[in-house]
Design a protein around this nucleic acid. Structure first.
Lengths: 224, 224
DNA sequence: AAAAATAGTTTGAATATTCAAAATAAACTG
DNA sequence: CAGTTTATTTTGAATATTCAAACTATTTTT
């Protein structure tokens, strides 16, 4: 059984690789930032992960999850997301306050407890942020979504939110933006760095910065 | 925040002190057995706990929880027992399989999550084994119960079970013995080491060994 | 291409936790 | 009480994880 620390490294590598879709290698510096550790620590730990065949390590270039490491990472992710959903659905906690709790619990829940949660919620496939809940043994379908920051004007549905900052999540809910919400991008000004969204049923247009939009993934809808 | 390891030591000291009611000092050897660690390890760790004022340590004699250590221990116990009850009541897990899960989760749950569980179950005062759930800031009332192994013939109500072994717990439930169950002790033979119990509504008498009876605490009932 | 900036690695050290084995103290025994 | 047994402590060492600071490779600038 990998230690919590190991699990966190694998999760971070997975997340970074997915973030800027399909970068072949994750640089160690990114990991240092993500995990808030010093570069030297990362190098040391990555060496150890490589010895255990959890990652492929190319010194000075970066790391990549091995098949084994990927599987591990998906299991952690599954636990994390199932727990988040559980906290929101069953424990009635707010989606903005649920991430940290899940972060701790994901290293402590047994398979049995996990199975109970899963069953209790009817085998859900998405967590409260719209992220897919990996299933043991199954591939995660390559996401059909695009970053809100990269998208032309048109109609979209909010798919996932890749930022766990409670402030941000609160602002999102307050603005009516949740996974599943439909809206139109009415303008996108690269100079000011502001997009304007027209929510379904929303009166005024909602401005959102490019930086924030990077952490939001959307699914294009027909122009209907 | 004490580490999980620290929490486990404190919990173990508390449990051992309570077990043979009010021994002034817990010997390090008992701790070694309880925690399944070598004696040297215990000595080392106890020294560190003493430095942090969590215990009073008398070399070669034993340890005692300090006020601070006691408070810590009670908090861990509260978490543990609330979680056990939650797993049984809400997650529908069997009381015999719940201990290990709680053992892991007790170091990972946030105050918020704990509060939600507490509220959800209506602020319960006892866990599935009949053990009291400590409340922050409140004393635990000195238990009015006696060990089944020490008790004369008469009527009793099962109060607590101080053994987490799933086999044992399963046998107990199968025999109809749960916290709250009423029964009479009809005979107690110190030579054979067997007690006979007559369960309320139970047809035959139930024999139980002295060793097992030591881990069961009962409340005397009037001879009614 | 030499200089400067950036990213990554190495080294030496610290902390927390654990073990095995040797040393010591205390308790028990005849 | 001398000898043995048992409990505890000490010592030396290991593992996992982390840091700071010195060093090195790579990339970017000029």
């Amino acid at each position: 059984m990998p230690s919590p620390t190991t699990e966190n490294y694998l999760k971070a590598i997975y997340a970074l690789a997915e973030r800027d879709t399909n970068r072949p290698l994750v640089r160690l510096g990114e990991l240092a930032t993500e995990l808030k550790l010093t570069p030297g620590t990362i190098t040391t730990m990555i060496r150890s992960l490589a010895e255990r065949d959890l990652v492929t390590y190319q010194p000075r270039a970066g790391v990549k999850l091995s098949a084994k490491g990927n599987q591990e990472a998906l299991q952690v992710l599954r636990r994390h997301r199932l727990i988040e959903l559980f906290l929101v659905e069953v424990m009635k906690m707010d989606w903005s306050e649920v991430h940290e709790d899940a972060e701790a619990l994901e290293h402590a829940v047994s398979d049995k407890f996990l199975a109970k949660m899963d069953e209790m919620m009817g085998y859900p496939t998405e967590d409260p942020h719209g992220d897919p809940i990996p299933v043991a043994g199954a591939e995660i379908p390559a996401s059909q979504t695009r970053k809100l920051s990269d998208v032309p004007s048109g109609n979209y549905q909010l798919s996932r939110v890749n930022d766990q900052d409670p402030e941000f999540l609160d602002w999102l809910s307050a603005s009516g933006l949740r996974p599943g919400t439909r809206f139109a991008v009415t303008s996108h000004d690269p100079r000011s760095g502001v997009l304007l969204l027209q929510l379904e049923g929303g009166a005024a247009e909602l401005p959102i910065g490019i930086g924030a939009a990077k952490n939001i993934r959307v699914k294009p809808l027909g122009t209907h």
